[in-house]
Design a protein around this nucleic acid. Structure first.
Lengths: 139, 139
DNA sequence: CGTTACGTTTACGTTAACGTCACCCGCTCT
DNA sequence: AGAGCGGGTGACGTTAACGTAAACGTAACG
């Protein structure tokens, strides 16, 4: 295992090491490779994940927390890979996507809040019913 | 079409009428029947939806807004159908389910809020980048 | 040499809630 | 009689993100 002289961390990691480091299953990493989200170096049949793969995976997982689909994430990641020459255009595109996502998320949150309020109201009603049961002695 | 003397609304409704009244597709209603959520009267092969079906459908759609699965909803609906004799137990069960759902929904909302905040921070960063692009004259 | 551990590939299974398609039936208008 | 309309019944398709199982390789341990 080759270590980085600065960090003493392995330059290349096996699938197991990746799984433990990022708390994902091997299946997930193979799946991401198949979907062209990761590009581990293949030594024969085995995978060696590089720093680049780790950086990408970190972004992938963050993207998922944001609710981006894997396909969205792949496109964003790819943009940053192409020989950067239109940095600004890329950044704008990313920013726009983020804005759209943000709008969706905020709407979801609002709907969720509405549903929560409605459900709370129903539950208050149910509580009254239960209280009346108790008063009527149906223990 | 038989009308209710009080409301002048049809006692029985066709699948089309139901679709318009509740903004769902025929497929959805057939699907709900198959899943034993609705029990329209079958005249030969055609469906006649009763007041009871409409009441159930209303609850089904509300339940969906709350994030309940159709299976959850079916169980709740069924509880209210069985010869009511343990009203209190049923109500308690419903109340408990509602509490669990509420907890899930609130957690989802909180996570969403966190993700929104994180995404906002990233976007502020991106905005700075864009601004610096503009200052550097890369129009 | 057997087994254990870790890795691989291929390919089908899962889940929810319908959408879609092909084909059939009966009524009504013209 | 033909043409629509409205409804009906299977049954397969869709989507995302993996899970799972089968069958194989290979390297080290004892």
């Amino acid at each position: 295992m080759i270590l980085n002289p600065k960090t003493d961390k392995p330059e290349l990691m096996t699938i197991r090491e990746m799984c433990e480091a990022f708390d994902v299953t091997p299946r997930t990493l193979r799946f991401y490779e198949q979907k062209e989200l990761l590009f581990p170096i293949r030594q024969g049949t085995k995978r060696n994940f590089t720093r680049r793969d780790r950086a990408r995976l970190k972004l992938i997982l963050r993207g998922k927390r944001f609710g981006f689909s894997l396909e969205d994430i792949r496109q964003l990641l790819d943009m940053y890979d192409r020989e950067p020459g239109q940095q600004e255009a890329q950044l704008k595109r990313t920013y726009q996507l983020a804005q759209e996502r943000l709008a969706v998320m905020e709407q979801q949150r609002d709907e969720l809040n509405e549903a929560i309020a409605e459900l709370r109201a129903q539950m208050a009603w149910g509580e009254d019913m239960l209280a009346s049961f108790r008063r009527s002695g149906a223990a």
